[in-house]
Design a protein around this nucleic acid. Sequence first.
DNA 1: CTAGACCCTGGAGTATACTCCAAGGTCAAG
DNA 2: CTTGACCTTGGAGTATACTCCAGGGTCTAG
Lengths: 139, 139
Amino acid sequence: MFTIGKLASLTSVSNDTLRYYEQEGLVEPAGKSPAGYRLYDKDSARRIHFIKHAQNCGFTLAEIRELLALRGRDNACCGDVRTRAIEKKLQIEHKIRAMKAMSKALDQLIAECANEAQPVKECTIIAALERATVAAPVQ
Amino acid sequence: MFTIGKLASLTSVSNDTLRYYEQEGLVEPAGKSPAGYRLYDKDSARRIHFIKHAQNCGFTLAEIRELLALRGRDNACCGDVRTRAIEKKLQIEHKIRAMKAMSKALDQLIAECANEAQPVKECTIIAALERATVAAPVQ
DNA sequence: CTAGACCCTGGAGTATACTCCAAGGTCAAG
DNA sequence: CTTGACCTTGGAGTATACTCCAGGGTCTAG
């Protein structure tokens, strides 16, 4: 069990951000000290890392709250949870496809840039993305 | 050549958003009518779609501006552009890895949910993500 | 027993990305 | 030649996700 400052430095986010996440229902301290200090454990750190990863993948805090809710401890495996999990998975797959297309487009750009001096004439990124993507709309 | 309203409905964004993007240096109208109306072409529509895709992949408008700058027409293929392209590619790959991990975690959750009634005990999403990711920091 | 480093709450401020007016000009149809 | 659907600029307002106080309590070390 450690206090907020420790968790903050462990996860590279600020104390304020941790309190904000708590306010937004994304993390709860594992407990409180007699003086009212928030006390966290290793799972708290995991959760913060998860939030940061998910955010980096383009999910909003609201969406992350949903992702976290999928593993609610009590009445987990009901059909509703499964449905939302599948929904989120489709969302993620869609994003992955778009990002792969971009990665490919960048590859092309990088390859073309290998022989310097010769200027790029086509808009490689946009063109490649246009060829590659076109998938089910995300929600 | 068509006006802003057409481009807006073609790309499913608002007129206001298009003007905002222009203000932020992300799109320029292909021309202007005598009355001062913005006039766009198909490339404009492509660019808007690109912006939306990139945004959906978690890039900020500032980053998207950078991505778009990579294909600057005049002095493109200089080493600097190549470097930034490689940088962006690493960023994207990192995100793809994280998203694949999440996708996998959701698969697991979905599979476990297939046999209803049996509640999930472990935090699958976080656990799977933790196992799977750990990559170079993104910038 | 006090100095310095920590913690608390509550509220205000900031950056990003829109979103929505107000006040007015443009233009094709009837 | 006016009506209605479009366009213009400029500026204010909103949601999200922080970020930064102010004013005050807690705790460990000297």
